[in-house]
Structures are given as structure tokens and as C-alpha cells.
């Protein structure tokens, strides 16, 4: 059954990908990209990667689609001068594909428990997480502490994307010369549609609550700062679609957004600095409490919060940068 479902999902993925490349309408292409991500998320779930599935659904299918639509509103929606087929590109691409297929025949088969990846490093994580960190979700443990330095880097990547977009597009009230008051007031996106407006208004509190749940439940189930930040930002984006761009900018002001962007990363880095000052290595949470396991749990809780704050700040700021540019 799983096999059949897997093959069905994978085949759909290929079909959708070809659709994205072939369509001349960019709006269609963006919507198909959202579907692509959702299929990908389902596929990850089939492959037992719940955390990744949640992230792909929230970030890839959700936020990414919204941002692409926001960007698309500012540029032409149709592809010009479409060529039939690009021979050289096809040649290069086929060569690379052949390389990959060549490699597959000696790869370990899917699900083989004796594959090298399941023999080294990973078993240690599965064994030691309950002892050293004491939380059930091993993905969160690896993300938060064993490879916490990568995660700090990831937060900085998000932060950089945020400052990059704000640098390029400006944000009324903070970056560039426009003020928040110059942004058009009112609800031009969903304003004329009664049903989405009422349903949306009802949904927003639950979305925000769910974000908090995902944030703080990440140690026990799938979830964590990235997913929570994306969901929280999605809730606020829905608010700005219903209430209007200027109104949303007045609820969480641009200065606050920039503060959130920076403070999450600083909170994360701060944990590292504190553990240094307490005599450990950078990001060594063992130092944070008398009991190392408690220290680890505190550390993960705080850095996940930092991740959530920066991701929320960046995604919202980036959305507003696109949305306010056109209004």
C-alpha cells in the first residue's frame, strides 16, 4: 500500500514539475510550485520524516507561495519569448542525469537497515538523546544541540535574506523614505469577499495558537522554531490580507519587525556566549544548569525560541516589503 502510494506521489511530483517548466503563465507556475511542495511534504511523511514534512508544508507550500505571489503582483505575469526546446541545455542536463543514474546502481536500497547511514553517527544520536538530552524528539535534539551550530548558521541565513530583501525593496516606516502612513489603507485583497473575511477572522487566533503549540511542543513531537515561525507569520499575513496592509503594519510596526529579526539571532548567539562565559565551549548547554540534562533542555528551549522569533520577524518583514511596494 505504501509502495503504491509512494509511486503515485512521486509520479505526480514529476508531472507537476514538468507543468511548472512548461506553462507560460507565471501565476499558474507559482500555484503549481505550491502543489509541488505539498506533494513533496506528503512524500517526506511517507518516508518517516515528520519534521521535514511539517517544514516543507509550512515553508515550501505556505510561505514560499505567498511570497512568490506577492512578488508576482509587481512583475508581468506571462513569460515572453518562449523557445521550443533548448538543445545545449538538454544536453548538459541529460549528462548530469546519466551521472546520477549511474551512481544509483551501487547505492544501498531504500530502507535497508544495514546501509552505512544507519550504522554510524545516527545510532549514537538515537541511543544518546534520551540519556544526554532527555527529550523524545531526536530530530529536535540533533537540530538544537548536537548540530546547534548549523542551526545558528541557518538562522543567520534567514536573517540575511531578511536584510537583503529590506535593503532592496525598503520597508515603509523603517527602511527607505516612505512612511507607514503613505501605504494605502484598507482591504483590497479579500475585502470584497465576505466568506474569506469572516472565516479568516475566525481562523487567525487558532493559527497563532497552533504556532505557539508547534513552538513549545517541538521537543515532544514534530515541530520547533522554524515551523512555528512560519505558521505565526502565516497567521499575521492572513490578518494583513483581511484588514489591509497599512493596518497590519500598524499592529506590528516595521521597527518592531526589524527588532524581532535581530533579537532572535542574538538570543540564540547569546546562549552560546553565556555557555562560553560559564566555562564551556560555544553552545555547550551543559553549562546552563547544575544538571547537564536540564541545561540541555533549557538551551534547546531558548534557542528554539530565538529561531522562532527571527523566522517570524523575517518572514513578516519580507512579506510586507513585497506587499507594501505595490501599494
Amino acid at each position: 500500500m505504501t509502495v503504491l502510494f509512494g509511486i503515485f506521489l512521486l509520479t505526480l511530483l514529476v508531472v507537476v514539475a514538468i507543468g511548472i517548466v512548461r506553462t507560460g503563465n507565471l501565476f499558474t507556475a507559482v500555484m503549481l510550485t505550491g502543489i509541488f511542495s505539498l506533494l513533496m511534504a506528503a512524500n517526506f511523511f511517507v518516508l518517516d520524516a515528520a519534521d521535514v514534512a511539517l517544514t516543507e508544508a509550512a515553508v515550501g507550500a505556505g510561505i514560499s507561495t505567498v511570497l512568490l505571489l506577492g512578488g508576482l503582483a509587481l512583475v508581468p505575469g506571462r513569460e515572453r519569448n518562449r523557445r521550443r526546446l533548448h538543445g545545449l541545455a538538454l544536453g548538459i542536463v541529460s549528462l548530469i542525469t546519466l551521472m546520477v543514474v549511474y551512481a544509483t546502481f551501487e547505492k544501498p536500497r531504500l530502507g535497508d537497515p544495514s546501509a552505512p547511514v544507519h550504522q554510524h553517527v545516527a545510532p549514537w544520536y538515537l541511543e544518546q538523546t534520551p540519556i544526554l538530552v532527555g527529550i523524545p524528539n531526536v530530530v529536535t535534539a540533533v537540530l538544537g544541540t548536537f548540530r546547534g551550530y548549523d542551526t545558528l548558521g541557518e538562522v543567520i541565513v534567514v536573517f540575511t535574506a531578511g536584510i537583503g530583501v529590506l535593503f532592496l525593496l525598503g520597508l515603509p516606516g523603517a527602511i527607505g523614505s516612505r512612511k507607514t502612513e503613505e501605504v494605502q489603507p484598507g482591504n483590497s485583497y479579500l475585502g470584497h469577499h465576505l466568506i474569506p473575511q469572516i472565516v479568516g477572522t475566525l481562523l487567525i487566533p487558532f493559527i497563532l495558537l497552533f504556532a505557539l503549540y508547534v513552538q513549545f511542543h517541538g521537543e515532544y513531537g514534530p515541530g520547533g522554531g522554524f515551523q512555528a515561525g512560519a505558521i505565526f507569520a502565516a497567521g499575521m499575513i492572513l490578518y494583513s490580507l483581511i484588514a489591509g496592509e497599512r493596518e497590519a503594519l500598524q499592529v506590528i510596526t516595521p521597527r518592531v519587525l526589524i527588532g524581532l529579526m535581530a533579537s532572535g539571532a542574538l538570543l540564540f548567539g547569546g546562549v552560546g556566549i553565556v555557555s562560553m562565559l560559564l566555562g564551556g565551549n560555544f553552545l555547550d548547554y551543559n553549562m546552563l544548569a547544575d544538571n547537564p540534562v536540564a541545561g540541555q533542555q533549557w538551551g534547546i528551549l531558548i534557542i528554539e525560541l530565538g529561531v522562532g522569533i527571527t523566522v517570524t520577524g523575517v518572514l513578516l518583514a519580507v512579506y510586507h516589503a513585497f506587499a507594501a511596494r505595490g501599494r
Binding site: A49, A122, Y125, L126, V139, L143, D150, E154, F226
Partner: peptide, 9 residues
Amino acid sequence: PLPQVLILT
């Protein structure tokens, strides 16, 4: 768990 963490990133 490791590839999952990498792909989250």
C-alpha cells in the same frame, strides 16, 4: 534523524 536535520536546514 540526521538527513532530516540537514534537510530542515
